[in-house]
Amino acid sequence: MMISLQTLEHSFREMLRIRLFEERVRREFGKGDMPGFVHVYVGAEAIAVGVCSQLEQTDMITSTHRGHGHCLAKGVEIAPMVAELYGREAGLCHGRGGSMHIADFSKGVLGANAIVGGGIGIAVGAALAAQTLKDGRVAVTFFGDGAANQGVLHESMNLASIWKLPVVFVCENNGWAESTPASYSISVSDVAIRAAGYSIPGVVVDATDYSAMHVAAEQAILRARMGNGPSFIEAKFPRQVGHFVGDGEAYRSRDDRKSARQLDVIARTRLELESRGVDVGAIVDELGKLIGGELDSAFAAARDSKWPNIDELESYVYSN
């Protein structure tokens, strides 16, 4: 599948931006002053970018504990994201959420959700709002293969189907639900097969192939936008990194880990761009400097910025 060179190059830049962000998060986390734990989006970039680059700012997404990529692809700014990772007042959620709960409603990000499958039904509800208000918005929910076995996914698919809601289900299947392999825990070879049980068109996409991901997302979003109902995309890719930063993956063979790293969407897209005559080295240098500089100042600023005021401990529990 071919997409325009312009689109591919733009998306490559977006994916690289996420990769640079996540690699920096990994490094900085190692310094020990970032509270809690983080899950990085390395290797999945094509999914967030393939989908979110074709959404409007007013469209709504729900994300997962591994949500940095979704946020960046949906237009969330780096500095307040980083401040949130450090639990600071300047963070997107004023330090109340952290990595696993980043939200930016101004960009349509209704929140990362640390309950596996927690965001699925919320996106269905957001789509119900869009349908009822007839405002043309669509909703997308990202979830992992672990969520494929959550009951709420099935209830939500059924509901979206009977009400023909403008929602796209995107299953990011990296083969592992923490330490449990999808090959063991999922009764079917492809999660997308299950969509048929709810009369929802389901496709399996190789998420290391950016163009394929982009086209699948385009069709699903269009279907939602036209009022033709939900779609299901299972985006498959091998998990290149541990479940969380610091996960030694003792449960996984060395060979499996090594081969996963060889199937990288950034490397693959780079080759494709080069074969189409693009000077990717120049793009990598340019972005390395640009995003690198932005990350330098975002991390420095976050570390220097204020903690939330403990007098405001009880803020944000209720809306007045």
Partner: peptide, 9 residues
């Protein structure tokens, strides 16, 4: 869940 999402939407 849909009720929560509908409210947010």
């Amino acid at each position: 869940a849909a009720t929560v999402g509908a409210a947010m939407g």
